[in-house]
Simulated assay, not measured.
Amino acid sequence: MKNIVKLTKSALVAVVAGILFMACSQALQVSYDHDTSVNLKQFKTFKVESERTMEEDPLLGSELNRRRLGDAVVEVMQAKGYTLDQNNPEIIVRFMTDVKDRQQVRSNNMYSPYMWWYGGGNNISTYNYQESRFILNIYQKSTEKMIWQGWASGKVKAPTKKDDRDAMIKNTMADILRTFPQATLDTYSRK
């Protein structure tokens, strides 16, 4: 009997921890696109800067967040094996953020044989929210063409501490760059 109680408590703790983890995690959708004619594995050096046409969002586009974004991209790219080269990079990673006002419309059809009695019908409700986007554009320096783009979008809950902000931004950049290939030693060219 003690084992069953102990097992039940352990399971309950695991379920509560899982629910808390899911409640605290960011609900960002990550996607990417790339130029299939370019071998992304041929590049070794990079440079990071903010996108030239970046909107000036007062919160996400602040100087503090620009530094956080730049530092996070540098850290993730270096972890992938790329070398930071401010003078002669092979690729330029440009980042930008923006916030869009969104609206979700929900409809709850409550039709039943007894709706005349209960007053059922079609209930419509709207929910207004802001959707944030983090966008990384990677350009080949020699051609100035975009060769890869990744983005994360969704509702971002503001972190409470500075460390949480840094970790959230770093994790978001790592999620976006997850599909960008690791730097390799070979520089073969393939189409």
Rank of each mutant, 00 (worst) to 15 (best):
D163M: 09
G154L: 02
A11Y: 15
I147V: 01
D33T: 07
I91G: 02
G121L: 00
P159F: 03
G120E: 04
V15P: 01
Q86M: 13
L185T: 11
A72L: 04
D101S: 11
R66F: 03
V30D: 05
G70C: 08
G154K: 01
P58W: 07
M173Q: 08
I176H: 00
S10C: 13
S37Y: 09
S25V: 06
R102D: 12
G120Y: 01
M115Y: 07
Q86G: 11
S132Y: 04
M22C: 11
R67N: 10
T160R: 15
A11G: 15
T83F: 09
E131S: 00
K155H: 06
L84F: 13
K9L: 15
P113S: 12
I124F: 06
R67M: 10
T160V: 15
T53Q: 14
K41N: 14
R178H: 13
L40R: 01
I147W: 00
R133C: 04
S107T: 11
R94W: 03
A79Q: 15
R102Y: 13
S10E: 14
P181H: 11
I4C: 10
N87A: 12
G81L: 03
K162E: 15
Y188Q: 13
F95M: 06
D35Y: 01
R178N: 14
K6P: 07
T36N: 06
N87V: 09
N65G: 00
N39V: 06
I92P: 05
A167G: 13
E90N: 04
V5M: 05
Q26A: 10
T8V: 14
G61P: 01
W117M: 07
S132P: 00
M54W: 00
Y127H: 08
L64P: 03
Y127N: 08
M54H: 03
S142D: 04
K157E: 15
M77K: 03
S62H: 05
I4R: 14
L59K: 05
K155W: 06
L69R: 01
I4T: 15
A174T: 14
S142Y: 04
D33I: 05
N171A: 13
D98Y: 11
A27I: 08
P89C: 04
N122V: 05
S142V: 04
A174E: 09
V73D: 02
S107D: 07
I169L: 08
R133H: 11
M146G: 02
N123P: 03
G119V: 01
R68M: 12
A183N: 07
M77F: 08
F46M: 00
K44D: 08
Q103F: 01
F95C: 03
P89R: 01
M146H: 02
K161C: 12
N123Q: 11
H34E: 09
S37F: 08
L28G: 01
E56W: 06
E90P: 02
A158M: 14
D101C: 01
V76C: 06
W116M: 11
E90M: 04
M110H: 13
L40N: 00
S153M: 06
I19V: 15
E131T: 03
N123L: 09
T126H: 11
S125N: 04
Y127T: 08
P181G: 07
I138T: 00
V74I: 09
Q26W: 09
M77E: 02
D175Y: 05
T143R: 00
A167L: 15
R178P: 05
Q78E: 08
N88G: 04
V99C: 00
R190F: 10
M115A: 09
